[in-house]
Amino acid sequence: MYQVTLEDKEHRIIGVKWESNLTPEAINQANEEINQLVQTHKFNRFHLIVNMRDVVVFKPETQKAIVAHQEWLMRRGMVQAAVVVKSNVAKLQLKRTAKEAKHNTETHFINTEEALSFLKQHVGV
């Protein structure tokens, strides 16, 4: 359903992998894991790389949970998000979600390498 990882400690990049069968409960669990990483490594600001390559569309209740997730991330200290996404439907959902969450720090990519490179350039931000 999801996976949370520390992608790059030096650049304060946390990774999240979402899958199509994602539930609001899993999003809450992911938030707890992200929070644990932030506390463990004493990140007051961090970047997020989100892998959504396998996601085509989210259910409406999951979409609402993603809005709350994005709002929480910004309050927790997220500076920039790089999202790897293939599906045009998922991109449209993400744009709507970001607008609802008043989240304008999200950039979309088609591969992980480009997304990581982009985030590493924003280290001082």
Rank of each mutant, 00 (worst) to 15 (best):
R96D: 05
H69N: 14
H103A: 06
R96A: 07
Q70G: 15
L119Q: 04
V16N: 05
K95V: 15
F46Y: 09
N88R: 02
W72T: 03
V83R: 04
Q80H: 10
T62P: 02
L116H: 02
A98L: 15
V57F: 11
F43L: 08
I49M: 14
K102F: 13
E100V: 10
I66E: 12
H41W: 02
V38L: 02
E71H: 12
N51W: 09
H69W: 15
A65H: 09
L119P: 03
S20E: 12
V16S: 07
N104K: 14
H69E: 13
A82S: 03
V55W: 12
N88Y: 01
V123F: 12
N88W: 03
V123A: 06
R45Q: 12
M1S: 14
E19I: 02
V16F: 06
H41M: 02
H41F: 04
V50P: 03
H103C: 08
P24E: 03
A65S: 12
V4R: 08
A82D: 03
T105Q: 03
I66P: 10
V125G: 10
Q70D: 14
F109M: 04
I14H: 10
V79H: 01
R75P: 09
H47K: 06
F109C: 05
R45M: 12
L116V: 02
E61S: 10
V125F: 06
L37M: 03
K99S: 08
A30D: 09
I34G: 05
N31Q: 09
S117T: 10
E10P: 12
M74Q: 08
L92D: 01
L116M: 06
N28R: 09
Q39H: 11
E61H: 11
L94C: 10
A30T: 04
I110L: 01
V55T: 13
F58Y: 15
D8N: 15
A90Q: 12
E25C: 01
G124V: 15
A115D: 15
V55Q: 11
L48V: 06
K42V: 01
T62F: 08
I34T: 02
Q36R: 03
Q80V: 14
K59A: 13
V4I: 06
A26F: 12
I27P: 07
A90W: 13
L119D: 12
E100G: 07
R75D: 14
V84L: 04
W18N: 00
N21W: 00
S20T: 06
V83M: 11
N31H: 07
V16A: 11
V85H: 14
Q3W: 00
L22Q: 06
I66G: 08
R12M: 11
K91C: 05
Q121T: 07
A26I: 12
E71C: 10
I13C: 05
E61A: 13
R96F: 09
Q93C: 02
L73V: 08
K95W: 15
K120A: 13
M78G: 15
Q121L: 11
A82R: 00
V89T: 07
T5N: 04
Q80K: 06
T97Y: 15
A68P: 13
Q80M: 12
R75K: 12
I13V: 09
